[in-house]
């Protein structure tokens, strides 16, 4: 349980030294402990994505969440499980298919863009090439992209990817969030007040006030 995510940016890495959410599991209720433990255990097998889709989805999610080395939060396994179980969000846009089909179509379209630009599937492009392909989709905003509205595809990808990533205790460690809080609750609420198990930010300066100009956006 002591693994840490290798956050790329030197300024953000280690903001909460020694903070280890999962070490607090003994204070969580049983139902909560079970759902969190599942995320820390072996990820479910890929059931929904084809091998090609899995490769594309991994390359895409590694980019979205900047997970370029192990250990990684197994984001694609978690997305795959939701899609296999049709655990959608209770709505889809009129001009888009439901989420599982939208994932398949959008991954195929992403691959097609890479082949047209770089004559290689997306997952074989280098990281800079991949970023270019992705940013081109982001830049389309409300415009069309392979028969879909670009920002709605973006919302689909980021919604599923972030739900998986920020449900994981490793991600909580990185952002200083202690995770489950029942039945213990909080005793010290208010600005700058900490519980004994919380860790103060070691680098509290606004990231936008530090350093290089290209760090605002990817």
């Amino acid at each position: 349980m002591n693994q840490k995510l290798p956050l790329q940016d030197p300024n953000a890495r280690g903001r909460f030294p020694g903070f280890d959410t999962a070490s607090q599991a003994e204070y969580w209720d049983m139902a909560t402990k079970a759902v969190v433990a599942e995320r820390l255990g072996m990820p479910p097998n890929i059931r929904f994505f084809t091998r090609e889709e899995e490769a594309t989805a991994n390359a895409l999610c590694d980019q979205l969440l900047d997970q370029q080395e192990d250990p990684r939060v197994p984001v694609v396994h978690l997305i795959d499980a939701r899609l296999a179980e049709k655990q959608y969000d209770g709505w889809h846009y009129e001009d888009m298919p439901e989420d599982a089909e939208a994932w398949k179509q959008s991954l195929a379209a992403l691959d097609q863009d890479s082949r047209e630009a770089w004559s290689r599937p997306f997952h074989e492009c280098d990281l800079g090439e991949q970023r270019g392909v992705i940013q081109a989709i982001v830049d389309r905003g409300s415009g069309e992209w392979h028969g879909m509205i670009a920002k709605r595809v973006w919302s689909l990808w980021t919604r599923y990817a972030c739900s998986a990533f920020y449900s994981h205790p490793w991600a909580w460690d990185e952002i200083g969030f202690p995770g489950p809080a029942f039945p213990r609750g909080y005793k010290n609420i208010g600005v700058d007040k900490l519980e004994p198990f919380e860790v103060r930010d070691a680098k509290p300066v606004d990231p936008t006030r530090i350093g290089d100009a290209d760090r605002g956006k990817s």
Binding site: L7, N11, E174
Partner: peptide, 13 residues
């Protein structure tokens, strides 16, 4: 997104 998402998120508190 990517590195800047992770960095901004680490600023959550």
């Amino acid at each position: 997104w990517g590195a800047s998402l992770r960095e901004y998120m680490s600023d959550y508190v």
